[in-house]
Design a protein around this nucleic acid. Structure first.
Lengths: 344, 344
DNA sequence: CTGAAAGCGCTTACAG
DNA sequence: CTGAAAGCGCTTACAG
């Protein structure tokens, strides 16, 4: 038949009720094994696939998860992070036959509107929140909607929703100690957006470690993660009177553009300048020298977030139980060609 | 009320039937203006948003568009193209209150299964096909499903579905003439996947133009678009006995990694080697020198594809009418620092 | 212009 | 173990 087959079609050819078909299809008691077999065979033969809308309407669930991204097309394109994260999320979702609904928004207000609309429409059963802010209105808002949600990032203690996060402070200490061991005493950092949670975590950790190591100089300049700002800030740092011998970047895009500026200024990397990128992506191996970077498995991170959201949606915990945040492994430093001993 | 309001709630408080509410909400005749106003006011006050599943079930439409990507997390992350395309698509869809459902697949078979399932479930009303192949089974398959579909890429003449495409041959001629004018006579190209349609279009156009210009040497080496292969093929080309003085890359990722190889081999760009990238993205401005590249507005391209799909979904043309493909502006060459006169 | 009813395709108590 | 029925929340002919 060219019309999509329904349970009514199956019921008719099997000579049973629609209820029986539903029980058989969903592996529930209520039909004998023989009948079940027969029904399943007919369903398979007809190529039956349940209509999502009908199913959703009955069980009041959308069988989909939503993700709203507050970033420009430009940023989304250039930052490998998002697509890798989405890949991981999507892998988990599709293995549970859940759909992924994606929307790009311009402002927090728009983003909150999207969540409210999704909730009201029942378009999604849960959402994943990205780009956590140091102060983040979204946490309370989605919690108030009672829309299952997981924050991707953290740590966010005493928050109304759980998060999947990883420690950002330890890598900060690690990288400064590594550079210190290589003899670097004047180090600077081209940091990310100051409003983001992980930026503040790194700000604090870098500050403390720099003080503890008694570095000659350490400063963090904040940026919007773009290559343009990465280049501009790098130029500023490298043309100052006592220029740093090592630069740490909060993402890989800026590190690549920083390397370009070093070339432009005739500084050889790593002889005269060491460069370290934060988010490792294939980008870091594209350059010459290739970039020393902090690596972590972003798709796995996304998968873990999706799994946590699934468990929330399944309502596996008591209403007043502490939301079970999950800590992921911290990023690992992968030394490559862009770091070496300080030339003094 | 904490329960999501339904049209029944509105009907009750307005003292009318559910049908009247539906007419009023959808701007259809069947209610007086006064009643309509009253209903709309109550709906607004209750914060009414229609339940998607119920609406979908009634009107047999999912109010969503699907896109299945057959690329690895790695590729999706590093290629700015996809996220930019998706941004453009999404912008158009959300302005029409349509959702975007995204799925990542491993093989063509999986991809075709996804389309079949989406169709059977009525999860989407239409799909967008990316990464068109020179031979592409998907065109026939989705056409057979009678699932509205638009191919992103082309030209695909006499195809069962329309496409949004742009001319790739003219830019090929243009770039060779440009390099010729700069004095280059030995040129090579690091091309993309040979199975993709636009690769074959470029293969042919480059071949013809090279012959017409009577270049001393022109060759195309095919790759998988990855930085690794870009580097490997560049190394091979630059270490051959008569090395080319200019390299053209089919994407920007490989061009960046080719530039890295030039640095590695101590070749100065553009003095000893000119480099041109195909897909312009912020990546091309990250390097030093910045890369001469072919630019086009990818988000706009995505928007156009989405709009064409919407018109198809609206069923605006007769069943036997020729599918109305849309040609987009060809890519424009943006000369930057990576190209210059041939040194001989 | 308006109301009551049927229907979209599922799921799920409720009787037999 | 099975069947008949109601219900999810909308839309849409069909009568008045």
């Amino acid at each position: 038949m060219s019309r999509r087959p329904t349970i009514a079609d199956i019921a008719r050819t099997a000579g049973v009720s629609k209820g029986a078909v539903s029980y058989a299809l969903n592996g529930r008691p209520g039909v004998s094994d023989a009948t079940r077999e027969r029904i399943l065979a007919i369903a398979a033969e007809l190529g039956f696939v349940p209509n999502r809308a009908a199913r959703s309407l009955s069980v009041s669930s959308a069988e989909a998860v939503g993700i709203a991204l507050r970033r420009s097309a430009r940023t989304l394109g250039i930052e490998p992070y998002f697509m890798e994260l989405i890949s991981g999320i999507e892998a988990t979702l599709s293995s549970h036959s859940l759909g992924l609904t994606l929307q790009i928004v311009g402002t927090v207000e728009e983003e909150l509107d999207v969540y409210r609309r999704w909730w009201a429409e029942r378009r999604v059963d849960g959402v994943l929140l990205c780009d956590l802010g140091a102060e983040d209105r979204r946490l309370e808002s989605v919690a108030k909607l009672r829309l299952p949600a997981v924050a991707v990032g953290g740590p966010i203690d005493h928050a109304p929703i759980p998060s999947v996060w990883h420690d950002d402070a330890e890598p900060c200490r690690e990288v400064l100690e590594y550079l210190y061991a290589l003899g670097h005493r004047r180090i600077a950092r081209v940091a990310g957006l100051p409003r983001l949670l992980h930026t503040t975590v790194r700000d604090a950790a870098f500050g403390e470690a720099a003080k503890r190591l008694e570095l000659e100089a350490f400063e963090s300049l904040h940026s919007d993660y773009s290559g343009e700002q990465g280049a501009r800030l790098t130029r500023r740092l490298l043309t100052s009177r006592s220029r740093p011998t090592a630069l740490v970047y909060d993402n890989d895009v800026m590190a690549v553009s920083g390397l370009g500026v070093a070339h432009e200024l005739g500084l050889s990397v790593p002889d005269q300048l060491s460069i370290i990128a934060w988010d490792d992506s294939p980008l870091c191996r594209l350059t010459h020298p290739s970039l020393t970077a902090f690596s972590r498995d972003i798709p796995a991170y996304g998968s873990r977030a999706a799994e946590l959201l699934l468990s929330l949606m399944a309502g596996e915990r008591a209403p007043d139980e502490e939301p079970p945040s999950i800590q992921s492994p911290a990023a690992q430093l992968s030394p490559r060609g862009s770091t070496g001993p300080a030339s003094g």
